[in-house]
Amino acid sequence: MLVVGGHNWNVYKGTNGSNQVFSFLRTSDSNSGTRAEVGPRPSRARSASARSAL
């Protein structure tokens, strides 16, 4: 189970024959809206100009 946006989600991992897939199923209040972005985290490295501004 995973908690995102204050809601509980069951996470399932499997394949569709040729690709690995993940399914996220909300366990309650599934008609209420929740926005969650899933993907790689942005880089935390700062540019030289951002470091010099500190």
Rank of each mutant, 00 (worst) to 15 (best):
T27E: 09
S18F: 08
V4C: 04
A53E: 11
T34Y: 06
T15G: 02
R51A: 12
G5V: 11
P42E: 14
S23L: 06
V3L: 14
K13C: 02
R35Q: 14
L2P: 02
S18R: 06
L2G: 05
L2T: 14
A53N: 09
P42D: 08
L25P: 00
R46H: 06
G33C: 11
T27W: 01
V3W: 05
S30P: 09
S49D: 09
S28W: 01
V11P: 02
A36D: 06
G39D: 09
R41Q: 13
R35K: 11
M1Q: 12
L2N: 09
G39L: 02
R44C: 08
G5I: 11
F24L: 15
N19H: 03
S28C: 00
K13E: 07
N8S: 14
G6A: 14
A48F: 07
S18Q: 11
E37Q: 13
L54P: 03
G33S: 15
T27S: 07
S47R: 12
G6R: 04
N10M: 09
S18Y: 08
F22P: 02
V38Y: 03
R51T: 10
V21L: 00
S47P: 00
A45T: 14
A48E: 12
L25N: 13
F24A: 11
A50D: 10
P42N: 09
P40M: 03
S49Y: 10
V4N: 03
R26G: 02
S28H: 12
S47C: 10
S18G: 13
V38K: 02
R46D: 07
S28E: 12
S47D: 07
P40T: 06
R51H: 07
S43Y: 04
L54R: 07
F24E: 13
N8D: 15
S23N: 00
S30E: 15
G5S: 11
A48N: 12
G39V: 05
T34R: 13
H7E: 14
V11R: 01
R35V: 12
V38R: 02
N16H: 03
G14R: 00
Y12A: 10
M1K: 08
G33N: 14
Q20F: 15
E37G: 13
G5W: 00
R46T: 10
G39I: 02
V4H: 00
P40Y: 03
T27C: 06
N8P: 10
T15D: 03
G33I: 13
A53I: 07
P42A: 09
A45H: 05
N8R: 05
V11D: 00
R35P: 00
A45D: 13
S47N: 12
G14Q: 03
R44E: 15
T15R: 01
S52W: 05
G33T: 15
N31E: 14
H7T: 08
G6S: 09
S49C: 00
L2W: 05
R51I: 12
N31I: 09
G14I: 01
N8I: 01
Y12W: 01
R44Y: 09
S18C: 04
F22D: 08
A53M: 06
R41N: 14
S52M: 06
W9S: 03
A36V: 07
T34V: 15
D29F: 11
R35N: 13
S23A: 03
V4I: 15
S43P: 07
T27I: 07
T27M: 11
L25Y: 08
S28D: 12
